[in-house]
Amino acid sequence: MRPFKSSFLALVVVVAAALAQTAAEKPTLDVRRVGARLACQCGCKDSVATCSMLECGFSKPAKERIARMQAVGMSDDQIIQAFVRDYGPGIYLAPPNAWGWIVPYASVGFGLVVIWLFIRKYRKPKPLAEIGPAEIDDPDLAKYKDQIEKDLAKLE
């Protein structure tokens, strides 16, 4: 039983290593998810998943290592723990906390309130249904009617 198990593990590691080679070039979603939680140490200030340096000395092997660890069934937390153990707590990138989510949505809500206030302030009190004749009813303005009519005829 015992020899079988270790040879099985060895097989897993070999397969994982083969997978990892390609994983570094095209990280799977799983690798990207974990990689996004780890700061790349190459000086780019990006995460392991987003470091865009080709042939990066840190993010490339790190992605391979993540893929290997996932292949042997380690959970995301365990992988991150392993990295934190090796590189110190500075490597951990927290996922966006509640602020990250609330603020953009709050801004939409705030905007809606502003629009509501705007409409309330500038809305004419007159109801839509009140439609008078298509005439200028104000006597002060009536004298301009002729000129307007003349100009209107010239439109187009």
Partner: peptide
């Protein structure tokens, strides 16, 4: 604003709470 927030949030967060945060494309 959402894009601005996403761009600056990691910087703000690190300055305020010393927590490093990353927003991925997923976010």
């Amino acid at each position: 604003f959402a894009v601005l927030w996403g761009t600056l949030f990691p910087v703000i967060s690190e300055a305020v709470s010393n927590n490093k945060i990353s927003l991925d494309a997923e976010w």
